[in-house]
Amino acid sequence: MGNIEEVLTIELPVGENFRIQRCRYAPTQGQSTKRISVVSGIHGDELEGQYVCFLLGQWLREHPDTIKGTIDIYPAINSLGIDSITRSVPFYDVDLNRTFPGSKNDFLPAQIAHGVVNLMRGSDFAIDIHSSNVFLREIPQVRIAKSQEDVLVPLANLLNIDFVWVHDAVTVLESTFAHAMNTIGTKTLVVEMGVGMRLGKAYGHQLLDGLLNLMAHEGILDIEPLKVRFPIQSHVGEVAYLNASCPGLFVPVIDHCQVIEKGSVVGHIVSALSGEVLDEVIAPIAGILFTIRAYPIVYEGSLLGRIFGEKQ
């Protein structure tokens, strides 16, 4: 049974405290080997991580004797947001994942970010679980900045995910939780899976296996490593983006992320007013459709999908 603590509190104006809660599992005997932080809910409209936290907690309660390290579970960083379908930090309307490393001397979101970094400082690993947003559905994937490739890709390969996407460093992403943690020596992986405001049970179980496997490899759990899938590596191919050519209602032909042929129809953009089909969305390359739009209203440019295709 884990130890539940309120680890960060900030007073709110009217008779309430903002709080972050943590459930910590530690070895029943002996010294802790390593420490891992499992984090979700930096975005308040992403709930897949909540389910993974539940599954992990449930597993750990059933297998207390296997725990050799310290396992910290933080299901709801933006707790105000999680409990109110609000992606950003309420009141300030600021994306918490653009305010790291934060500061004690700044506004509420920056204080939360600062508190979060301090809480997790000293962890050997952190797994930051996101579920895209309400617009897009993603297959389980880990996204890694190019500069961190050597350190993080081997770790990501343990996580039982489908895709490892190494992307060019964008300066804006220096203000994310993952960047802040990687900078202070905590190996931090960003998992994206599923869709905002919903739960996908299968993905939750898939990532649970990955977490157990990673912890087995790192000596945090005294169990045999699991047999996990080896993710597709982005460096062997290219990502094609499908953006809407016009505004309208996007009606997918393909409901789930899957392997598709070049030239196949991904969906249609239609006009609710005139009854016309405005555009047919065609796969420009063959490969795996790892992102598909979940929210039907689109403008010109709205992302409809992403396909990863291997180089010929």
Binding site: P13, K104, F107, L108
Partner: peptide, 8 residues
Amino acid sequence: PLIFQNSI
């Protein structure tokens, strides 16, 4: 008019 703890 409503202020948070540690706000500037």
